[in-house]
Every structure is written in C-alpha cells, then in structure tokens.
Design a binder for these strands. Sequence first.
DNA 1: ACCGGGATGTTCT
DNA 2: GAACATCCCGGTG
Length: 229
Amino acid sequence: MTTGGRRRTLPRSFYGGDALDVAPLLLNKILVRGRRVGRIVEVEAYRGADDPASHAYRGPTRRNATMFGPPGRLYVYFTYGMHWCANVVCGPEGVAQAVLLRALAPVSGLEEMRQARLAGRDGRTDRPLGDRQLASGPARLCQALGITRDDDGADLVRGDRRLRVVDDGIPPPQRPGISGRVGLSSAADLPWRFFLPGDPHVSRGPAPVPAGVAGAAGVFHERRPPRRR
DNA sequence: ACCGGGATGTTCT
DNA sequence: GAACATCCCGGTG
C-alpha cells in the first residue's frame, strides 16, 4: 500500500523533453482538477512530425495549435462526435509532441466524478458506476474531470482552470508496462503506450507486445488478468 | 469472454 | 465525403 507525500506541482522543465521520455515519467503523477484528483496509470506518446498517428504530423492546423505551443499545457481535442481527450504538451515550443492521458486511478472527488460521468451519458443507463469505470479511458477521464474544449491550452504549471499535475513522492514504475497504442489505423505497432502493470484502472487495450519485439530492453510486459464487471 | 454496431459532429482531403 | 487517439449496449457461447 502506497501513501502519497506532500504534493508539489511539476515544473515546466519536466515537460520540455521528448514525449517518449516524458510519457513513462508521468505514470504515478497526480492529475488535479479542483477537488477531483487521480493518479495517472496509463499514457501514450505522440511525436508530431515523426509520427503518422499524431494530429500534428501534417503541420499546424486550428485544432492542433496548442501542440505547437510551450510545454506543460493541456491539448484537448474532440473526436467521434461526442468525446473529448486530453494530452500534456511536451518538447520545446514549436515542436509538436504530446502525451495522451488514457487512464486515472481516482484518488479523491469520486462522487463528483461519478456525477459528471452519469450526466455525460445522457441518462442512457442507471447501472451503478464502479470506481474502475470512472476514468479508465481517455474520454472517460475527460468526462470524469469535466475537461472540454474550454480547457484546451490550460497551463498545468500555473494551474489554469484548476488543472495541475503534481508529484506526491511516489516514483514512476521501474519497469512500466508497454504496448502498442490503442485505436490507431497507422503506426499502431509502435510500443508507445505505457501503463502501471496490473493496475485495475488501466483501460482495455491491445494484447501486449511479445517480448523480443519491444524496442527498449528490460521493459516489463504483462497480460492483465480479466476485469471484474 | 468476445464481437458487432450505433451514436454523433468536427476536421481535413 | 471519409476518417476519427471512443464508449456503450446487446448479442452469442
């Protein structure tokens, strides 16, 4: 059982490097939105001009403008006609890289999250929402925290819109889980998804990359046990 | 457990 | 006009 220590906002320098390096370091950091708080348990790296799956691959547009700005801001986009997803912008200004926030383990403000999630479902169902379904997925995460277009460009270092990423002293895993990114039609094989191995709040995803195919040596691969409910 | 389909609208070709 | 960094539901086994 791990207990967090004093919370300290991550400095802008944390985000200045390559998204592929920053992504695994974001694991076990804390995303704060007012009173709603969660531990980051799953992320994906997107590397702009070098990455066919990145929104920034073909250069700046109105939608991806935030990705080309300074690091440490939130890039929020709308997809599938109804969902928002949030990224943390990385790399120096002008270099469009980002880390998609794919899942949180809720820490506090769970009731607010539950309310936001149910409201977002347009009254479709009355089934109770378990803790594991609050923020396990990029769109669920945004729904739980109320992140929308209004939050695009929010500065996570200054705490714009009560959004912040903080460190509570729990380090990233020495051996993060790694796999291909979820839901892509190109570059889906690149092992740029990172997660806390075995954490029940990690979203469902593709089968882990077989050992030996993975790029980095010593990276931990794990077949997760079946999910309850 | 696994699979298939529908919802819904912005963005870019 | 097609694609989309998704989610939820209902079918089947």
